[in-house]
Design a protein around this nucleic acid. Structure first.
Lengths: 216, 216
DNA sequence: CTCCTCATGTGTACGGTGTCCACACTGTCA
DNA sequence: TGACAGTGTGGACACCGTACACATGAGGAG
């Protein structure tokens, strides 16, 4: 019991110990309910119990904090997709390919519906990324959502269900459809659709993508 | 020459004359370069040459101004789509249906690329609309973009190219794909794609939607 | 024509935010 | 032990949205 206040939220000493992570966590909390605009620097410091300027020792400015929160949100999305992707179990390679493709799509939309604030935040900051394997944005498997779609499509081609002429840039087609649906469901004209109907539309969108890939 | 300063931008008298429209126009200008966040009440009044509080005689608060700007942006989008839609001329009903569907999709993405700030603004405010025929959001034809997609799909069904079992909610599928693509192109990972490539991807997305609708 | 009235624009002020500056504390290493 | 560098604090500034009281002047009632 040498440390009277070991918890990072309430510090006993002048120094905080892990202020950067604490601010990040607070920022994620703000983004969760409220979206990117709710990520307010002063409020984050207030929640951590620290003066506003303390944040500037760890983040260049509010934009930098928001970018970190954005990365965290993308990682959470990646995690959700990863789980659904890994949950697909089949011996048949074609069936597995289909399952993986559908898993990515449904998990993507489900995350948007379950965590609209984080979802909006994940796609807010102009991420200059090439969608490449930026580790902070990947799930437990170490692969980003974009790579997972690519994997699924590759499997589809490998198992002969999709002609390889259609392979190039196919990620963008799948991604566009699912991303657009998610946006329309949480912010757009489809907002407020009952969950059951939202899921039904999601299935139809995934059907369309799959059909577009595997159709003869 | 009875009116020394007839122009609404520089007023000679104490009263402005058409402050509401002037503020709206200034707001649209702000949104054009900068998106919804750039619609700052004080800046709009500054541009019009009026004190900040004058805005409150015409808009309840900043949110109301932003909502009006959002409506205007949607109207501009509608206009662009409308033009492309109307430019389709063919005798063959099936070909016209296809052309209409493709026109809506390409015009939608083109607007997003040409006017990213306005596009983002158009979909920013939680519009409680049912996508119905709200006149302020329609183009010259009096039909909203959503109605135009619906029209195109109806034509597709009427001309026998699309099975009518697929008709219900088909707007959402088309809309999702195109909207998602637009978002990814202006804000997301596809940002910075050269225009030629962006157009190419757009064509592929439209192809996919069309195939999904008309496939046997 | 005069005067009253009310819509419209102004001025002042307050709280909130991001951010800069100078300063205070403290863990570490010579 | 003492200096130093990293970390947190306090105060200040500009900007924003917005509430309140007030000034202005256009247009109708007498």
């Amino acid at each position: 019991m040498a440390t009277p206040q070991a918890h990072p939220t309430a510090r006993a000493s002048y120094h905080h110990g892990d202020l950067r992570h604490a601010l990040l966590a607070a920022g994620v909390g703000l983004a969760r309910d409220g979206g990117p605009d709710a990520v307010v620097l002063r409020e984050a410091t207030r929640r951590v119990g620290v003066s506003p300027n303390a944040a500037y020792r760890h983040f260049a400015d509010r934009e930098a904090l928001l970018a970190a929160v954005c990365d965290a949100a993308q990682a959470l999305l990646a995690e959700a997709i990863d789980a659904q992707f890994a949950a697909v179990v089949t011996d048949d390679p074609g069936e597995r390919a289909r399952g993986h493709l559908r898993a990515v799509g449904t998990a993507y939309v489900a995350f948007a519906l379950d965590e609209p604030g984080l979802f909006r935040t994940a796609f807010f900051v102009p991420t200059d990324l090439e969608l490449a394997a930026v580790p902070t944005k990947a799930g437990p498997s170490g692969r980003t959502p974009f790579e997972l779609v690519g994997d699924a499509i590759d499997e589809l081609v490998a198992s002969g269900l999709m002609p390889h002429e259609r392979r190039p840039q196919a990620e963008f087609l799948a991604w566009s459809s699912v991303h657009g649906l998610a946006m329309l469901l949480i912010d757009g004209p489809l907002r407020g659709l009952p969950r059951a109907q939202a899921d039904a539309v999601t299935q139809r969108v995934v059907d369309m993508v799959e059909a577009g890939f595997t159709a003869p």
